[in-house]
């Protein structure tokens, strides 16, 4: 038994020895453990594909144009703020508005610095498929929704119409909205975006009507065209009290945030990320390549970068 242990230890030691001079090898492969070397950037990628598109392009350019090594970590939105403040993540490229976190980390603790706008405007809303809106045009007004509750019923929503909601990490007022607008609907949480998308695609395949919480920009619109249902207009502050919300979601200019230390001392990478600014169309193009054509994020970013050099040239630090 003892000789066995010694042999195992020896084997391990030898293995370790061969590893000592192998620093260059590790650079080639994806660095795994959190490595804050001089030229490493860690980006937070949220679970939706639009965010993957941002990160993929930023990663590609940081890597090929500026010579950085880039780690990506998939984290939900709120925990990502926390990770950003701790420096485990250097940047979030697409934030949909988290006033509480912003107050805590940007204003109070000053561990996170704003990184400017992404150039994409995000909007959350209620959507019905276009094929349904085409035949029933009045469904796009919330006041008529009750009329269709019957047709939107599922086993899960019981006797009411189903409003399909998404991942728990997303900003949503839907429960309050349904209640405050007095709608005959039941919010069904799909629990993850993956589940929601799968369900929407299944409905679309059968041309079944459905009502869902969804957001723009989103690549799924290319596959399943959807029309927004008009809710009572958004006014500044109408969503202040989450219990009493009875208005539409705002149009949010999506913003970037950087770890404060990284923003100061991050060199060209920080500057590049501050400059990163593209359009909804750009993002959708990359997102669609990833989600629909099943390209790897890296391949998709490469294709986009080849085509749009003039766009990203402007982001590089002078």
């Amino acid at each position: 038994m003892r000789s066995r242990t010694i042999a195992a230890a020896a084997a391990f030691g030898l293995l370790a020895l061969t590893g000592c001079g192998a620093a260059d090898m590790t650079k080639q492969s994806s660095p795994y453990a959190d490595a804050h070397g001089a030229k490493t950037v860690t980006l937070s990628v949220q679970s939706w594909v639009g965010a993957q598109a941002n990160a993929a392009v930023a990663q590609y350019l940081l890597n090929h144009e500026l010579g950085y090594r880039v780690d990506t970590v998939q984290i939900d939105e709120v925990p990502a703020w926390d990770a950003l403040s701790q420096g485990r993540v250097d940047a979030i490229l697409e934030d949909w508005g988290h006033p509480e976190q912003e107050q805590r980390y940007v204003a109070d603790k000053k561990t996170i610095a704003p990184g400017g706008e992404l150039g994409v405007t995000g909007h959350i809303g209620w959507f019905v498929p276009k094929y349904f809106a085409d035949t029933n045009p009045d469904v796009t007004d919330w006041k008529n929704l009750d009329k269709y509750a019957d047709r939107l019923r599922t086993a899960e929503s019981g006797g009411k119409g189903q409003l399909l909601d998404g991942s728990p990490s997303y900003v949503t007022n839907d429960k309050a909205l349904v209640k405050n607008l007095g709608l005959d609907y039941q919010v069904v949480f799909s629990g993850s975006e993956a589940a929601q998308i799968t369900q929407i695609k299944q409905f679309a395949k059968e041309k079944k009507p459905f009502l869902t919480y969804w957001y723009k920009p989103q690549w799924l619109f290319e596959q399943v065209p959807m029309t927004e249902v008009k809710l009572p207009a958004y006014e500044e502050g109408c969503d202040a009290d989450p219990e009493k919300v009875a208005c539409a979601y705002p149009h949010t200019p999506l913003r970037k945030f950087l770890n404060a230390r990284f923003a100061d001392a991050g060199g060209p990478a920080a500057e590049f990320l501050k400059n990163f600014h593209w359009t909804t169309g750009d993002q959708n193009e990359v997102a669609l390549m990833i989600a629909d054509q099943k390209l790897s994020p890296e391949q998709a970013a490469e294709r986009w970068a080849k085509k749009n050099e003039s766009t990203w040239r402007a982001w590089l630090p002078k």
């Binding site: 709120v78 925990p79 991942s167 993956a194």
Partner: peptide, 22 residues
């Protein structure tokens, strides 16, 4: 895990807590 596919109830609450840092 069921909370991730629409199981709701307690499972969803845990997923929610994780996702929202709540």
């Amino acid at each position: 895990i069921g909370g991730l596919v629409g199981g709701g109830a307690l499972g969803y609450d845990v997923v929610f807590g994780l996702a929202q840092g709540d």
